[in-house]
């Protein structure tokens, strides 16, 4: 048995080496770097330098506020939308179901740069179709890129467009795993379709919804593409800067790896904490 294990580990060695060098070591290294002042040469050990700055940095609190705001508004809206889309996709009345499934999933496979460019065009002040539509129904044009509130709304719309379909497909799989005869039993119990949805479908979908919510929370904590490409590096004036963007700015623009590492660990810690709270709130009753 031991010989077998040793042989197995010899085969695994190349992978384990690569895993250790490119995954494990960066995790440990960045943790250590977060305790170093990295804007001096050579770097020196200064445990409170980055973490102390983080606690008092208005830019960090701005990014944290923006990230949490997106998390609190966009994630529930997107999950609710995904549930509605999944229920519609699951309807036996729907024709060309495969086509709709493809259409809903397509945003995920569209290139990030391309979709961001299209969104910038669609929401452009003078030429965008969105403002044209607003004007056509008698509403005022919105300067989506120069004001903080519309810019944040734009980020949320874009993220929702991109990921709602993806979550809908996952929820659809959950819906299809609920046995049909449970609904038949409820029908014979004289339970209306609406009550069936709230008392049977939603409770039985809970594990899938929690899964989608956890994935979305982690994704939102790392949100980078949309504020970087659509609102031009977190603009206007840092109004849409997220923690992911702050990390990028500190790490790769200012080359302040120590502070970027501290931000990265804060993001990971927050994602874990929020996820744990979420799992606790949605736990199965004993």
């Amino acid at each position: 048995m031991r010989t077998q294990n040793a042989t197995a580990y010899r085969f695994l060695t190349p992978y384990l080496l690569i895993f250790a060098i490119f995954w494990i070591w960066p995790i440990i290294s960045s943790f250590l770097i977060s305790f170093q002042a990295t804007r001096t040469v050579p770097w020196r050990f200064a445990p409170t330098f980055n973490w102390g700055r983080l606690i008092g940095d208005p830019a960090f609190y701005n990014a944290l506020k923006n990230t949490l705001l997106i998390l609190v508004i966009q994630v529930p809206v997107m999950i609710a939308l995904a549930i509605v889309m999944a229920v519609l996709l699951n309807s036996p009345l729907l024709k060309a179901r495969g086509l709709y499934r493809f259409a809903f999933f397509a945003p995920v496979v569209v290139g990030e740069v391309a979709y961001s460019a299209v969104f910038r065009l669609m929401f452009s002040l003078d030429f965008g179709i969105i403002n044209k539509l607003l004007e056509s129904v008698g509403l005022a044009k919105i300067d989506w890129f120069s004001n903080v509130t519309p810019a944040m709304a734009l980020i949320m719309i874009a993220v929702t467009w991109r990921w709602a379909g993806y979550n809908a497909i996952i929820i659809l799989a959950g819906l299809q795993s609920i046995p049909e005869d449970v609904y038949e039993a409820a029908t014979l119990d004289r339970v209306s379709k609406v009550k069936q949805f709230f008392h049977i479908t939603l409770p039985l979908l809970k594990p899938v919804i929690v899964f989608c919510a956890v994935l979305s929370i982690i994704g939102t904590m790392q949100l980078f593409t949309e504020p970087f490409l659509i609102t031009e590096r977190g603009g206007p004036g840092g109004g849409t800067e997220t923690l992911g963007l702050l990390l990028y700015r500190q790490g790769f623009r200012s080359l302040n790896f120590g502070y970027a590492s501290a931000v990265a660990y804060t993001m990971a810690g927050l994602a874990i904490a929020i996820t744990l709270v979420q799992l606790w709130l949605m736990r199965e009753p004993k």
């Binding site: 005869d181 449970v182 409770p203 039985l204």
Partner: peptide, 13 residues
Amino acid sequence: IAMVFQSYALYPH
């Protein structure tokens, strides 16, 4: 009418 299903069809939650 009331029906008893082969799979029981109980509400699992």
